[in-house]
Every structure is written in C-alpha cells, then in structure tokens.
Nucleic acid binder design. Sequence first.
DNA 1: CCTACTTGTTTTTTT
DNA 2: AACAAGTAGG
Length: 756
Amino acid sequence: MSEGLNKAQQEAVSHHAGPLVVIAGPGSGKTRVMTQRIADMVHSGIAPGSILAITFTNKAAEEMLRRTMQLLSIPELDSFHGNGFFGSAALGLEEDRPVLRTFHSFCARLLRRHAHRLEPYTSQFSIYDSVDQKQLVTEVMKQLQLDRTAFPPRASMSTISQWKNQMVSPEIAIDQAATFRDRELGKLYGRYQELLEERDAADFDDLLLLVVRLLTEHPDVLERLQERFQYVMIDEFQDTNRPQYLIAKLLSQSHSNICVTGDPDQSIYSWRGASPDNFNRFREDFPQHQVVTLEQNYRSTPQILEVASRLAGSEFGHRELFTENADGNAVRVQQLHDERTESRRVCDHVESWLSEGVSSDQIAVLYRVNSLSRAIEEEFVRRRLQYAVVGGMSFYERKEIKDILGYLRAARSSRDDVALQRIFNTPARGIGKVSLERFQDAAISNGRTMGEHLRRSDCTEGIKGKAKKGIDHLREVLEKLEDRLSGGLADLVEQAIEASGYISHLERSEPENWQEREQNLQELVAAAAETEEILDLARQQPLQRHEDNEDDFDPLTIFLERIALVADADSQEELKEKVSLMTLHAAKGLEFEKVIIIGVEETLIPHSRHGEVEGIDEEKRLLYVGVTRAMEELVLTHSSWRRRFQEREPRLPSSFLSELEGTSIEFDRSPSRSGHTSPTVWDEESAHDSEEDDGLHPGAWVQHELLGRGRVNTVQGYGSSRRITVRFENGEERQLVVAYAPLTPISPPDEEWEAC
DNA sequence: CCTACTTGTTTTTTT
DNA sequence: AACAAGTAGG
C-alpha cells in the first residue's frame, strides 16, 4: 500500500492517533502523504466519515478527494466530475467517505445547519462576496458621511477584514483607535457589521467568526461535531489565521487526533491575518505532538533547487532542500524591452516546448499581479496558443451575472438588501436617486429592511408617477420569481432574465458587446441546470444518512453558496491541453514541468505596496513558492519598460535577482534584437515596433479559411474577447472573434507571412 | 425627477 | 477599461 515512501513519509502515514505536525518542504510529496494517510487510516478500520480534512483551496480539496478515492477504490460519485461546477464532495453525501472541504465551505455548511442558534441569522442567510461587501461599505460610508477619497472603500474593507481576522470587535477597535481616522473606520466597521446582521448576511470572514461563536456558545453542537469527526487534518497550516486555528483546535480538543501540515517558508498570506506562528501555538496547545519533517524534494532539478535555496537561505527557514533528481537545464533569467517583447519571448519558449512534445498543461506562466496577464494573453491569442487564466475576475463577478443573481437573492430573502438595491433600477424602470432615497427612508422609519418594505402594499406611499409604477413592477417581478422558488432551478434563472427584461436592457445599454454578455447569462442557466441535475442524482443515492447531515437545503441556496465559495474551481477538463496563466499566490500547491515567472522587477516582486508587518520577506517567500513550482525548467523574465495606465515606466530588475548571482543561473541581459540595453536609450523606433505587428489592424488584409480574403475595418477589445470587423471580397461584412476565427494575416497582394 | 453623457479614479495577493 | 460620481438635458 505505502511502498515507495521514504522513512519520514512512512512515519507520517502510519501515525493515526494523537497530534501530529508535518513540516513539508516544496515537492516533498505532501499530498501523497496526506492521501495515503487517510487511506491507511481507513484500512486500519477507521470510519471514513469520521475523517475531516481541511484544505486551503477548492482545487486542493478536489484533487485530494480524487486521489483518496482512488486509493480507497471508491468510485466517483458522478459522471459530471469533468465539467467541474461540482466536485463530488460538494453535496454532503459523504457519510461513507472522508469530508474534504475548505475552511470556508465547511463553515458555511455548518452554519446553514445551526444558524438559528445565532441570534438574528437564519439558515437562509446570504453570503456576501467582495462585490457585495464593497457595495455595503459604500452604503455605510454614505450614511456616516465619510469621504470616498479620504477613505477608499477597498482600503476600508481590508482594514475591517484585518480587524475581523484578529478577532477585534468594533467596540474594541473604536476603543483602541489612536487617531481620528481609526475611530471613523471603527465606527464604519460597527455599522457595517450591524447592517450585515440585519440583512441576514455573512461575509467571508464572518463565516469563520460565526462558527467560532457557534462552537464556543453552544457546547452541545461542539460535542456532536467532535464525536462525528474523530480525526482532523489541516493542510497549508502556515496560512491559517486566528479564527481558523481556533476552529481546528476546538474541533479536536476532545480527542487530540489532529494532523497539521504545511511549510513556514511558504507562508504568503499574512496580509490576510495568517500566521505561521500557529505552528508554535499548536505545539503549546498539544504538547504530546510528534513532528515529522519531509525534506527530500522529488519535484525539481538540482538547478531549480539551488535557486530556491538561495531565496530561502538568507532570511527565513533554515531547512535544507535536497533532491536525488538528475541534472536539468540551467535556470534562465532574461531581460526584455517591454511587455510586448516579454510576451513574445514567453510564447517563443512555449512554442519550442510544445514542439519538443511537452504537453500544454505542464506549462505555466506566473506573475505577481493579475493585470500582467493582459499582454501575455494578447500574444497567446495572436499565435493561436491555447491558454487558461486561472483565478482573476471570476465568471460570477461579472456585472450581468451579479444582476441576475441579485433578482434570485432578492426574491429568496426579504432581508438581502444589497441584492435588492443592485436590481432596484436595473434595468432602468424610472426609479431615480430621489425615489430610492424616499423608499429607503420609509423602510428605515418603519424598522424594516427594504425587501420587507417592498412586500407591503403601502410601500409606495409618497412616491408617484413613473417611480411608483417602477416599484410596483419590480414587486411583481419578484413575486413572480418567489412563486417559482420551489420549482426548477434553471427555469428560475431563465424566469429572472425574462421577467426583468434584462436582454433588451443589455441591447440598449451595451450595443457593442451585449451578445457576449447574453452568452454569459446562457452559461449561468446552464450552470443552474447542471446543479439541478446533480442534486437530483444525489438525492437518489441510497446512502444511509447521518443524523447530523440533513443537507436538504433548497437547490437555490446550494447554488448560490457554490457560486460564492467555489467559483474558482476550474475543472481538470477546462485546463486540459492549455497553458496555465495565474498569479504566484494561485500557484501555491501546484506543479508544472515548465514554469515562466514574468515581471520579476522592483515594485512588482517585492511589490511596492507590500504589507508593513511581514514586508519584504513575504515577497521573497512568494517568489520562492513560484520557483519551487517548476519540475524541469524555469525561466524568470523582467522587462525594462512596462505600461501602466497610459504611461510607460522604466523598470529595474528585482533586487531578489541580485541575490542569485553566483549560482548556475544563466543571465541573459542582452535584450531584444534592436540591442538597446538601457531604458534611457530606448527610442521611437522600438516604441513603434512594439506597438503593432500581428497584422490585425484597420486596413490590413486577412485570409479566412471559409470566407476568403478580406480587409479589416475595426478592432475592439483585447485578449480572448478581441474582435474585428472584416469586409470580405464578396462584399459581406462580418464581425469575428479573433481567438476563434480561422484567420491568417496576408499582405495586400497575395504573399503570406507568419507572426514571428 | 429621471436618464444619458462626461469626467476622474482605479490595480496586490484571496476565501 | 470599468466604474462611480457629477452634470446637462428632457
């Protein structure tokens, strides 16, 4: 069963009871150990359903479940696994299998079951994502008359979040405020929290905090959970924050069967309240613990590890990384002119790897900030290379999606005013600012939420004409939806789109790309249909139900919860045959044969706005995490110029790179063909040169596989949504999506030319 | 009193 | 670019 494990791995796998700390360096086979350990426990007679494993991301949870199931030879629950909206663990039918969840999804499910014991909350509570959160903060700021420029909503949100992660209540925050500013923020925090409760809503931080409250205030609930989950595992322990640690500790207090795994050197979430100090806390709280350290690296070549050790060696951890892997190519550092040349270089690498037979999904491009993906995407599209952006702006954060979901939420809960306000006059129905304010005031003076107020017949008192009509119409739409809440989910979503008149609203407000947005709404319907199907399937499963697991929530609740918490779960299928593009943070826990890290520059990889607390060390660990993702080959790039907003800025190589001098790294500082080394001698010629040369600009000629030759009229957008209009020789004019159209640029006469 | 248009701001990382 | 706030026009 556990053949092929080294001594330390063996030790971790066969340790079942009592507290255990596994310190696992990058590539040391941690996931393998975790899954083997679960399998080993089950084989020794421990009930699978009594094992709870908490991971950091949904992707990790899914992967771990998949591998565990394989080891246990339990068949996959459903055939839908491939398209990813659901992993099999999603539905709480796991009585006969281990429970594998993220902290947040585990907590959400727990709260659904017990919310009625937490004062104003109900099991219908809404989960507010960052978009909802921002809306609420902005609303409160208006109430408190705080100036947006002095208190940027985003910054306020992050302050509030930090307080929550430190478990500082509004009262204490106000109490400890040293400045006027802090006091105002404390008030903001307090009011924000009041409104959340009033709205039966929890933000991401609340999911954790409410569970802490639940477990401490209701010992009976805690006791039942401790009985149910006799074995607890926490992955990526260095990235747990205070509430998460408390939850883990509470759950395992009675039996002490808790295993935590992680690596302090890979701690990259301190800005979110996470602290590797939890390892020390753990050691104190569970004094009988054993420690296993996994040091041997099975992932990377010695060349890559040499770079990693350099980064790790100086400031943080002191553990040695070693490998018995064979030598590989030298790690390369390459300086380029600007993001265009950088993108081209990246694609050159990718193309040459592909031609060597490397599969696309074994290649990753990593960057510090999401905005860097843009230039890379453009070049990938130009060269028709398949790629997938992991993370970034999620599908469910798009405006049109949030709007339709707003209808569903407002219909489902009369307390979810953030949702209601979002759709109050979208599509425009004649309710302006003034009428909205009147309506709000009326609701407040009656001690109701807007949703509750709307559901009363006297709600339009004092409002007349178009606005009154609009409000009446909105109520009718919501009533129609309410009637269908218990029906089919896909049908409900379709009704929301239909009854709100959203499509014609799109056509009016966005003549440019309404079709694309409508397409997105179609996908939302499809996702709803899929959810419905899986729920039906799940309910037919003849599982004996655990008494604690009556997860018979309505499909809509489950749908919305999945959307809020699992939106990032890209399925294996979607990533297949594609090069991955993602942030360094998102790359944690993953591995690829070939890795390119772009933008290794001052102000980016030590980011200019790094947190004060952990500061530059955390930035270095972040690079360390990126570097250690690579198995065979690693390329770091930085460019001399980078475009930000409208301007071009000169860039310096990251100071971390200078620490790598003297290793076997191959430095390539002769930038692109034109031979300009320093930003200062960079000139017009190369500026022009880097602007346009994919042959897709107005006036250029293209060859279409089916439609023949034509001339480009207009170009809009970028990346995968880049579209052009082309007038073909037969006189027809067509709009085409560059990413999908079989187009080749040609020169006006007839001779073909290829992009680099 | 509402809508459509113009202007200024915005990007660190995520559940 | 995408989004909020501010302004002119209906």
